[in-house]
Amino acid sequence: MTTFDESERLKWAGRGGAYSGSFAKLCAHPVPQLLDAAEVGPGTRMLDVGTGPGTVAAAGCARGATVSAVDAEPTMVELAVQSAPAADVRVATLPELPFADAEFDAIVANFVLNHVGRPKVALAELRRVVKPDGWIAFTV
């Protein structure tokens, strides 16, 4: 973990509720286009990285995808479990995801790569867990 990563973890620690009541609403606007870019639909195995309060995970479930979602902040994970009860939601951090190689058809990350200290390493990890013909879509 880099110094930047440590700083981000401290900055967001325990702030899931505050984020959900503020920035989350703004960050939700590109979600339909993000899911379109990743071709998320019925039967898609989708990973939502940095799920926050679960907005993208819930939208993926609503499209009929089988959704896994991760976030580094436990209070975000608690909110995501409520928002997307059909999703497999866990605490996990980039660049070390608890998934097998080529496990997902699509990976989405809504305003996440700007919160990691080594974005190239994080992107390599996303490439590891997406299928060779899968999609990775993110917003920054």
Rank of each mutant, 00 (worst) to 15 (best):
D88K: 11
W135F: 11
V49C: 01
P98H: 12
G16N: 06
A62G: 11
P30C: 13
A69E: 06
G41V: 04
S22T: 11
R45C: 09
H115Q: 09
L47S: 03
D88N: 13
D88M: 09
P95K: 14
A59P: 02
A62P: 05
G17I: 06
A69C: 11
F23Y: 13
R45P: 01
A58G: 07
T66V: 03
V108E: 04
L113R: 01
P98D: 13
E125R: 08
V140A: 04
G41I: 03
K11M: 09
R90A: 05
G16Q: 11
D105H: 10
G17W: 04
A59I: 07
T44N: 04
V89D: 05
A37M: 12
G21V: 03
R63T: 05
A59K: 00
V40P: 00
A58W: 00
N110A: 09
R63S: 08
Y19G: 04
V89G: 03
G52I: 00
I107G: 01
P95Y: 10
K131R: 14
A100Q: 07
A106G: 05
D133N: 04
G16S: 12
A13V: 07
V67N: 00
G52D: 01
A59N: 01
P53C: 14
E125W: 08
R127Y: 03
V130R: 04
P95Q: 15
L97D: 01
V56G: 11
V49E: 00
A124K: 15
E6S: 14
R90P: 04
P95E: 13
G43I: 01
A24Y: 01
L113H: 01
M76E: 10
T3V: 08
E6T: 15
G54E: 02
F138Q: 04
A109I: 06
V77P: 00
G14S: 13
V89L: 06
Q82P: 10
S20C: 15
D5A: 09
V81K: 02
T55Y: 03
N114P: 07
K120M: 12
T139N: 07
D88R: 12
A124W: 07
Y19L: 07
A62Y: 03
V140P: 02
E78T: 14
S7K: 02
A80Q: 11
A137Y: 09
E125M: 11
V31N: 06
G60D: 10
V49N: 00
